[in-house]
């Protein structure tokens, strides 16, 4: 057990398995059962949050954080749906435009943080407010139309596995590869660990932080596309309703990545997102009050981080 807790990534998967087992028992006791449909549902629901959280992992590992993802998701869903305007022939253009907008927002976040030296919290909060203003000014409600072809992304399955889950897995594996096997990945850890040491070792730290933010925003953009395909349209509140900003940060931290940066990884984040999703579906099965869910979620996040903190503290002392 101690060995399990020693590594936050392993700890979160242990917690995930334990939660699944306990949940299974509780649901069975309640007279229900987890079906294949429920498990597919878990993957469906967690895909969007999962993709955002994988991106957020990059920002947090680099010692930053991104509070603008929720509004960016809404913006991307609208941009994509309006560009598609119901025509299958526009899908490619729309995806390119949507990801272009995301990359641009990430670039702005990164440049404001590194070149203007604004704390990431304020920089991304400010950018979030700007996007919010634009959204509120231009849109009153859902707009644009997503062609049926593109809706496959949100609903289709290959065998029992939803396409959305495959997309999430692909993003996670790509980011995992980036972090473990590329120079940029190493530099993200270096900058997040100690920005001064990284700078003195010849890393162009500003570029690394900007790259992390562009990638983080691109992930949010992919999640926005996914949500647009699921809704069949763009919606100005889809990002904030899902609480993707704080929820993604919570999932990353639940997965054992240090909020201060430099320690953690994508595997933990995936575990964190799945843990939140499993908790959610157990509560749905048991028909637990949604406010109670919030309470439990808050307790789980704080307790998990307290456990990790104890562990690292002991190692240090």
């Amino acid at each position: 057990m101690i060995a399990l807790v020693a590594n936050p990534t392993r700890a979160v998967y242990a917690a995930l398995i334990a939660t699944l087992a306990i949940g299974w028992a509780l649901v069975a006791f309640d007279g229900g059962a987890f079906t294949l449909n429920d498990i597919v549902g878990i993957q469906q629901r967690s895909a969007a949050l999962g993709i955002v959280a994988v991106g957020q992992t990059l920002a947090i590992l680099a010692g930053s954080l991104d509070l603008s993802v929720a509004y960016l998701i809404s913006l991307v869903s609208l941009v994509a749906a309006e560009t598609m305007a119901g025509q299958s022939s526009n899908i490619l253009t729309a995806v390119v435009v949507a990801l272009g907008v995301s990359a641009l927002v990430g670039l702005v976040n990164g440049v404001v943080i590194t070149k203007l030296k604004v704390h990431a919290f304020i920089a991304t909060l400010g950018v979030a407010l700007v996007i919010r203003g634009v959204l509120d000014h231009l849109y009153d409600g859902p707009a644009g139309r997503v062609p049926v072809d593109f809706q496959q992304l949100g609903y289709a399955r290959i065998g029992p596995i939803p396409v959305a889950a495959i997309l999430w897995a692909a993003v996670a594996v790509a980011v995992w590869f980036l972090l473990r096997r590329t120079r940029l990945g190493n530099r993200i850890y270096a900058v997040g660990g100690d920005v001064e040491v990284a700078r003195l070792s010849g890393v162009r730290t500003d570029r690394v932080v900007i790259a992390a933010h562009v990638l983080c925003s691109l992930c949010a953009g992919v999640a926005g596309l996914l949500l647009a395909s699921r809704l069949g349209a763009g919606a100005p509140t889809v990002g904030t309703d899902g609480g993707y900003d704080l929820e993604s940060i919570a999932a990353v931290v639940l997965g054992g990545t240090a909020l201060a940066g430099g320690r953690g990884g994508v595997a933990g984040t995936v575990g964190g997102v799945l843990l939140l999703a499993v908790l959610d579906s157990i509560f749905n099965q048991l028909e637990v009050n949604s406010f109670f869910k919030d309470v439990v979620r808050g307790v789980v996040i704080v307790v998990a981080v307290a456990v990790y903190a104890r562990r690292t503290g002991r190692r240090a002392s």
Partner: peptide, 27 residues
């Protein structure tokens, strides 16, 4: 106390508190 004694970063402590408080009061 959670932030100082359990050494949870205050961002997470108070984010958790935010979820717990609003959940609890409407429960």
């Amino acid at each position: 106390l959670v932030t100082t004694k359990l050494r949870v970063p205050s961002f997470i402590t108070t984010l958790g508190a935010m979820l717990i408080l609003s959940g609890a009061v409407f429960l």
